[in-house]
Design a protein around this nucleic acid. Structure first.
Length: 683
RNA sequence: GCCGGGGUAGCUCAGUCGGUAGAGCAGCUCACUCGUAAUGAGCAGGUCAGGGGUUCGAGUCCCCUCUCCGGCUCCA
């Protein structure tokens, strides 16, 4: 017998075992609870099954169910269970990839005869998965050489698995991305996840209690020891998905599901989904009478109703005030233009598909609805000679743009065909760029915070692989300027490789909302290209002509989208300064109507948005209920004692008990504070 | 654009085997005049998304279009 090996645990403690001990054994030796909760392990930092023998001294950490890593293992394992159930119910099905994703997993299939899954199929498949899970199938890993792996999946008639193996083995010979075509680095990551790499392929199979093999898959793992560990899952939806995410390749049938460590966690997840649905801006937009999308107008084209109009107007007014203070000048430009403008800018070349088709006028001249404001602002800059003394020049406009979004992507206010950007273009010298970007980032974050968003991170998007103009040097310089400015902000910065616009890199500000979802908000782009294309210049202190650089930036992104995000962030309960109705005044009985009207008048004279709702709208309790459902921040009830003492009863949104006998003058002061401080909840 | 699922009163939804359309809420009228989350009664409201087809007869079956929802791809 060889000498014992030493296993070091995450807490630094060490234990000795015989060589060949498994992580599962280690967990069992530590405790029953840990062994029961264990789903996988890391051995010297590498993910592994609990059953993998450990030959030498190692650092071992047990991965338990209720951790992010544990859930990932459970989800990935559940995707295998899904595929097995699909093979049972749809003989001849071919499988592609089936990874764990945020909150769940999916698996892509190609069904015989181009078959499709229906919602009813999901029910059958899920039922079958439960039967299979109960069979206590062991997950077993083994490795094969590339040829053996190829043979295994060739016999099984699984072309997608073969393609994964072949492409990677080809790439191993030819170098990364060699034979892979457009895919490149991202695909290589996927392939590694599928268990291919280093001259071997990882294969998992599910083995029943009697030793027969129920299922085999190409996979990196690790997996739970047994299907019995999979007990809280649910199939959620079926969707089409292109093989390798490529629109030009075959569309496969994807099944999405979610899986958790136990039923309670699953229930909580489903509850979070229900909560998100409750906050959905499309639903609240109808309930609160904010906006609508009349079919008569066309897909993706919104109208704002009076209440939504108030919110939008206040949003815009505050934005204008802040921009004015930050040195922006306001400009205006038309909605349509002759085609040459967007030929010069390059938009027509890259994005003609995304633009509304042209109107032919004046005997052959094409006019387009504008998809962007930048060329107009450039023309304003170019309208006369500019001196270096003027720079930076900052032109701001709430500019309405129109984009012909593909029919399947239009989504509420967040993806529309007609929208208004809070768009500005800054023209400055290269030397000014760094300072300008730094102050811009501060400005952006400060403004977003004023609208109630507080949790941010930054994303740096670099030069696209194909859709890009300009030299690598220009891109590198612009990207570095953005990176440098971002690094001075105390926020996480993540890299979005190849995600820039065709004319330049960008930083986007991502915001997390009240329930933790992230939204892309502001974008800041550095652009060396359009100044060249439009040949804009300024005269420098040396009396020579120089080319300015441009910074494109939108803080809301689009007003519509930002509006939608705020609706969801606040679940429709807007802070007082934004609320369409800030205050309703409810007379207890008819004899209090005159006083109630006086209260309303007093509030309105202070520019507050107050409404009178008298007894013809129902009993007091009914009127209160309606005001609560409309999420009005302040409900004022006035009765005999209030008429007498010039007071009001104050019922706060979110408050537990109404206040009585509040002096009207004191209440007006409170409202002023609320609005001035942009407080989130009334007080 | 592609895959799957929907579209019935302003909203949420029922509608059986193909036999000619229903509820709750909202709205309107009347009564009720009320102190903090739904007073009662009555009335009105629909070319069943639009068009075509099958049928003696279509909300229901078939085809096309529009549109919405969930994904995929895309997002200057």
């Amino acid at each position: 017998m060889s000498a014992p090996i030493t296993i070091t645990l995450p807490d630094g403690s060490q234990r000795n075992y015989d060589p060949g001990v498994t992580a599962g054994d280690v967990a069992a030796s530590i405790g029953r609870r840990l062994a029961a909760d264990a789903v996988a392990a890391t051995i010297d930092g590498e993910w592994a099954d609990l059953s993998r023998p450990i030959a030498a001294d190692a650092q071992v950490a047990i991965i338990t169910r209720a951790t992010p890593e544990g859930r990932e293992v459970i989800r990935h394992s559940t995707s295998h269970l899904l595929a097995q159930a699909v093979f049972d119910l749809f003989p001849g099905a071919q499988y592609a990839i089936g990874p764990a994703i945020a909150d769940g997993f999916y698996y892509d299939f190609d069904l015989p005869g181009d078959g499709r899954f229906t919602d009813d199929d999901l029910v059958r498949i899920e039922a079958r998965m439960r039967e299979l899970a109960a069979q206590d199938q062991r997950f077993e890993r083994f490795e094969l050489g590339l040829e053996q792996g190829r043979a295994l999946f060739a016999v099984a008639d699984q072309p997608y698995k073969l393609e994964i193996i072949d492409r990677v083995s080809g790439a191993d010979r030819a170098g990364a991305g060699g034979a892979a075509g457009a895919g490149g680095a991202d695909d290589a990551v996927d392939d590694a996840a599928e268990g291919v790499g280093g001259g071997t392929v990882g294969v998992y199979r599910n083995v029943r209690a009697d030793g027969s093999v129920a299922y085999t898959d190409l996979c990196r793992g690790p997996h739970v020891p047994s299907t019995k560990a999979l007990k809280a899952f649910k199939l959620t939806r079926v969707a089409g998905a292109y093989w390798r995410g490529d629109e030009k390749r075959k569309q496969l049938q994807r099944i999405y599901g979610t899986a958790w460590e136990d039923q309670k966690a699953l229930d909580e997840h489903l509850h979070r989904l229900a909560e998100a649905e409750r906050r959905d801006h499309r639903r609240l937009g109808v309930e609160l009478d904010l906006f609508s999308f009349p079919e008569e107008i066309g897909s993706g084209l919104a109208v704002f109703h009076p209440k939504g109009g108030v919110i939008r107007r206040v949003m815009e007014e505050y934005s204008r005030t802040r921009h004015e203070a930050a040195g922006y000048e306001f400009v205006y430009s038309p909605h349509i233009t002759k085609s040459n403008l967007f030929e010069t800018s390059g938009h027509l070349h890259w994005y003609a598909d995304g633009m509304f088709p042209p109107m032919e006028l004046d005997g052959g001249t094409d006019y387009y609805l504008k998809p962007m404001n930048c060329p107009f602002h450039i023309l304003i800059f170019r309208s006369r000679m500019r001196s270096y003394r003027e720079l930076p020049v900052r032109f701001f406009e709430f500019g309405s743009v129109y984009r012909y979004e593909k029919s399947g992507v239009v989504h509420g206010l967040t993806r529309v065909r007609g929208m208004t950007q809070d768009d500005a273009h800054i023209f400055c010298t290269k030397e000014q760029m760094g300072d300008e970007l730094r102050s811009l980032l501060d400005f952006v974050l400060s403004l977003l915070r004023d609208y109630g968003l507080t949790d941010f991170y930054l994303e740096l998007s670099t030069k696209p692989k194909e859709k890009a103009v300009g030299t690598d040097e220009e891109w590198a310089e612009a990207t570095e300027a953005l990176r440098s400015a971002a690094s001075e902000i105390d926020l996480e910065l993540v890299l979005d490789e190849g995600g820039g616009a065709f004319y330049g890199p960008k930083i986007s500000v991502q915001a997390r909302d009240a329930i933790g979802r992230t939204w892309q908000m502001s974008t800041i782009q550095v652009d060396f290209q359009l100044p060249q294309r439009f040949e804009i210049e300024y005269v420098g202190s040396d009396n020579d002509r120089h080319r300015p650089i441009m910074i494109h930036r939108a803080l809301f992104g689009s007003v519509e989208r930002f509006f939608g995000v705020l609706v969801e962030h606040y679940a429709g309960a807007f802070p007082t300064w934004l609320a369409p109705v800030q205050c309703v005044v409810l007379p207890v009985a008819d004899r209090h109507d005159d006083y109630a009207a006086l209260v309303v008048e007093r509030l309105r004279s202070q520019r507050f948005r107050a409404e009178l709702v008298d007894g013809s709208r129902g009993a007091l309790g009914h009127r209160i209920r309606n005001a609560k459902l409309e999420k009005v921040p302040y409900i004022l009830v006035v009765g005999d004692s209030d008429v007498e003492a010039e007071t009001v009863g104050v019922n706060l949104r979110g408050g537990d008990r109404p206040e009585r006998d509040v002096a009207l003058a004191a209440f007006v002061d409170r409202m002023h504070d609320q609005v001035a401080e942009r407080r989130l909840e009334p007080a």
